[in-house]
């Protein structure tokens, strides 16, 4: 995904950043983005949506209790996942932290590859291969199995390293900590990010976790920007 700074934009960027998303359907995507905490829609044009990105945007709302079940995609009741759930249990019986589970998922998926299109949690547990969607689905499964409400989110990720901005289509996990939803990205556990500054822009949830998940994925994937321009500190 192409990304360009605005002329004269600071390096590194600050905490609050504005950018223009180039999208297929500006009206529909502006509406979808308006339902995101930590992100403001500033305006839209012909094929563009201007946003302000504050810290760690998450999908607004959703009863956490509805994100605890084992489902067709997030199938933590399958034996392949159960075996790993047991191995990630804290020694004293306490609930493992979501960050710990993200690190476990990062380590478990030893073969980082784009060759898997979209695996179920049980397939990831058994095959230990995949890209961001496999990391997100598997972390969601482990989190739920340990009693953390969790859900799969699709969006774009902007990675800022000294002197460079890169953007990718991405998937990650939101875990509810009892007060609010928080981002956990098992492809880049917190302590693996190094100097990189990560900015997540969610465009939607995987709402259908049944056999029709592909349509649900498509529904959010088509909201993804084709490029991001005029990236600058928020005035």
């Amino acid at each position: 995904m192409r990304i360009e700074r605005a002329p004269g934009a600071s390096q590194p960027l600050g905490d609050s950043v504005v950018s223009t998303l180039h999208v297929g359907n500006a009206a529909g995507i502006a509406e979808a983005l308006s339902g995101i905490d930590g992100l403001d829609v500033l305006g839209r044009g012909d094929g563009t949506v201007r946003i302000r990105h504050r810290a760690s945007p998450t999908i607004a709302g959703g009863d956490p209790a509805q994100y605890l079940e084992s489902t067709w995609v997030v199938d933590f009741d399958e034996p392949a996942v159960r075996a790993l759930v047991d191995s990630t249990a804290a020694g004293d019986g306490a609930q493992p932290a979501a960050a710990e589970l993200a690190r476990f998922v990062f380590g478990h998926i030893a073969h980082k590859t784009y060759a898997r299109s979209f695996d179920l949690a049980s397939q990831v547990a058994a095959g230990a291969a995949g890209d961001c969607t496999e990391h997100a689905v598997f972390l969601t499964a482990l989190a739920r199995a340990h009693g953390h409400p969790a859900r799969v989110v699709v969006g774009s990720l902007v990675v800022e390293t000294p002197g460079e901005l890169q953007a990718f289509g991405h998937a990650w996990t939101e875990v509810h900590d009892g007060e609010r939803w928080r981002i956990y990205d098992a492809t880049i556990p917190h302590d693996e990010a190094g100097q990189a500054r990560l900015r997540y822009t969610p465009v939607g949830l995987l709402r259908d976790e049944g056999p029709g998940y592909a349509l649900s994925m498509l529904e959010v994937a088509v909201r993804m920007p084709t490029r991001i321009t005029e990236v600058a500190d928020s005035p």
């Binding site: 999208v23 297929g24 359907n25 009206a27 529909g28 995507i29 509406e31 979808a32 529904e219 994937a221 088509v222 909201r223 993804m224």
Partner: peptide, 13 residues
């Protein structure tokens, strides 16, 4: 039959 076409994306179109 379709001769050629482009897939575009976007909800609510």
């Amino acid at each position: 039959h379709i001769i050629d076409g482009d897939v575009s994306a976007g909800p609510g179109r």
